[in-house]
């Protein structure tokens, strides 16, 4: 996802249960990199670059892009870049599609492709070529890295990164689109590979990839919309698959997929807003998967992005892809 435009109108005065604790969330996100005395900080180093993307995007949506210093962010991002053109999760971690996508999204949000070029000669092209090298010419799928794990997620990561780099022509888009089409199920939704059960995270990546490829004509929008709308539970939250529990991160994947096929009105936005707001930690900031659980930057980001898609007042507008 990326920002559509700058922050919207100022926040109206709202009753406590419908309030977004903007300042708390900003200081929560700022605090994340100061927790080096906690074991958890080190055990999650393999997510550092994603975490930075999640935190930074949340801050932009909250209207506080200045809360993390631009130069510091870029310095860290480039410290994760390998000679090959791929990015790892942190310095010394191997290159992988997941982190390369986050890196490209950060650079694009900060409008800093010139800095990439300055850091590495022909950097932009090198990153694009690294991603393109992971496509299987036979099947059109993408691997996550040199070890070859395949998953529809990586097609999305590749398409999204390459479109931000302006280098989508480096890969065979049609082949990859065909592969996505072979992952569709009777319910109109998508799985990780042909034959796999429909899963909202996978729906988001497949519909997102098809949106970038301008091939939403391949989606059975009525059926998919029906399946997605049934993810909403009585408490307003959305789940990832039939008969599972609700979760803020799944809420984002489901609602952004609905938005991409113009069916966001098929669920109750007010109830979903209330569910997401109920996942805030009103004292220390941040959002969790469900009300009362421990917060983390992942759910903080998806919760705030969800509120933005639901047009919560005062937030910058988010692009569902």
């Amino acid at each position: 996802m990326s920002l559509v435009s700058g922050p919207g109108r100022g926040m109206a005065s709202l009753p406590a249960e419908t309030r977004l604790y903007v300042d708390k969330h900003v200081s929560y996100i700022q605090s994340l990199d100061t927790r080096k005395d906690e074991l958890e900080y080190w055990l999650t180093e393999h997510l550092r670059l994603n975490g930075l993307y999640w935190g930074m995007t949340a801050l932009h949506l909250l209207g506080h892009p200045e809360a993390l210093p631009r130069d510091g962010i870029l310095k860290f991002v480039f410290s994760c870049l390998h000679e090959s053109g791929g990015f790892g999760a942190a310095p010394g971690h191997d290159a992988h599609m997941l982190y390369t996508c986050s890196a490209v999204q950060i650079i694009a949000t900060l409008d800093a492709f010139d800095k990439l070029e300055a850091h590495m000669e022909h950097g932009r092209r090198k990153v694009g070529q690294w991603i393109a090298s992971l496509q299987d010419p036979e099947t059109g799928t993408f691997a996550g890295d040199e070890w070859g794990e395949k998953d529809t997620r990586f097609i999305f990561n590749a398409f999204l990164s390459l479109s931000l780099l302006g280098l989508l022509d480096l890969v065979n888009v049609d082949k990859a689109v065909q592969h996505i089409n072979s992952c569709v199920n009777f319910d109109g939704a998508y799985g990780t590979s042909p034959g796999a059960e429909s899963h909202s995270g996978q729906v988001y990546t497949c519909v997102g990839a098809l949106t970038i490829a301008d091939r939403l004509d391949l989606v059975n929008q009525e059926r998919l919309g029906a399946w997605l709308s049934e993810r909403q539970l009585k408490n307003g939250g959305l789940n990832g698959r039939p008969e599972k529990t609700e979760d803020v991160c799944y809420s984002w994947w489901v609602m952004s997929s609905l938005a991409m096929i113009n069916k966001l009105h098929w669920i109750d936005g007010e109830k979903l807003t209330a569910f997401i707001l109920g996942c805030q930690d009103p004292d220390l900031g941040g959002l969790s998967d469900r009300p009362g659980d421990m917060v983390d930057v992942f759910h903080t980001h998806f919760g705030i992005a969800g509120l933005s898609l639901l047009k919560y007042p005062g937030l910058a507008e988010v692009d569902p892809v």
């Binding site: 958890e40 999650t44 997510l47 994603n50 975490g51 979760d247 991160c249 930690d281 220390l284 969790s288 998967d289 469900r290 009362g292 659980d293 421990m294 917060v295 983390d296 930057v297 992942f298 759910h299």
Partner: peptide, 13 residues
């Protein structure tokens, strides 16, 4: 960094 189903009290004690 992406936790599921852990109650807040347990984390912030």
């Amino acid at each position: 960094m992406a936790s599921h189903g852990i109650t807040r009290a347990a984390g912030t004690a």
